[in-house]
């Protein structure tokens, strides 16, 4: 197992995050990108600087929006679930949702809206099927708490607990075309048993033609 891990390709680190490194590989230069929940605009300003993208963000927290705009990111302060409806169809080449799908009230509606306003959606989410979560649940009999999911059940932002397999099943049911899937354990790429071994999953999704 250890030997197999070491032979796995090492995912490049971008701004300290493996999922950002994957996004940066996926996003083509000179495209238009919307980052939902863009925080202080770190990823978008990197993409603008290095990929010459037209970078737009949505963020709820005023302090983060302030930092994002100060970085030169076109950031809109608002609720990502409510704001999507205003954007016209196909406005963006990519709509990014990083580590937030499990926090939104209506994940399917958000995914469908992302695929309406964007030609492609890039979604990264924590895999609740990871073995550490399973073990934590199995052995404690309580809502799982791990280093990746440190919150108590009553103040966790996570309200939907889904796994890699759950997402695959939904994608098949909704007829989405999955153009790329990358699984990460920390910043290392996972090549086998992603539902068990991946902490984070990154999907590049397109609406079925």
């Amino acid at each position: 197992m250890t030997a197999a891990r070491q032979s796995d390709p090492f995912v490049r680190d971008l701004l300290g995050r493996g999922d950002y490194a994957i996004f940066s590989e996926i996003v083509a230069p000179q495209t238009c990108v919307l980052d939902l929940g863009c925080g202080d605009g770190e990823l978008l300003s990197w993409l603008a600087e290095n990929k010459d993208v037209d970078a737009r963000g949505v963020e709820m927290d005023a302090a983060k929006v302030q930092k994002a705009i100060a970085k030169g990111v076109s950031c809109y302060q608002g609720n990502l679930e409510e704001c999507l409806a205003d954007y016209p169809d196909g406005a963006f080449d990519y709509v990014i949702l990083s580590q937030t799908l499990q926090e939104v009230r209506r994940p399917l509606q958000v995914m469908n809206e992302m695929l309406r306003v964007g030609r492609r959606a890039i979604v990264a989410f924590p895999n609740f099927g990871h073995w550490r979560v399973r073990l934590a649940h199995l052995f404690t009999g309580r809502a799982p708490k791990t280093t990746r999911f440190p919150h108590e059940w009553y103040d966790s932002p996570n309200i939907h607990f889904f796994t890699v397999d759950d997402f695959e099943i939904l994608a098949a049911r909704e007829n989405w075309t999955i153009e790329k899937r990358v699984f990460l354990d920390g910043n290392r790429e996972v090549k086998m048993l992603p539902n068990l071994l991946a902490e984070t999953a990154v999907y590049l999704v397109r609406r079925h033609a």
Partner: peptide
């Protein structure tokens, strides 16, 4: 104003400062 601009996908940054 902001939402009118977003409906045309125009480049608009918006913040409500505290």
């Amino acid at each position: 104003v902001v939402n009118a601009l977003r409906r045309r996908n125009q480049d608009v940054a918006y913040i409500e400062l505290t």
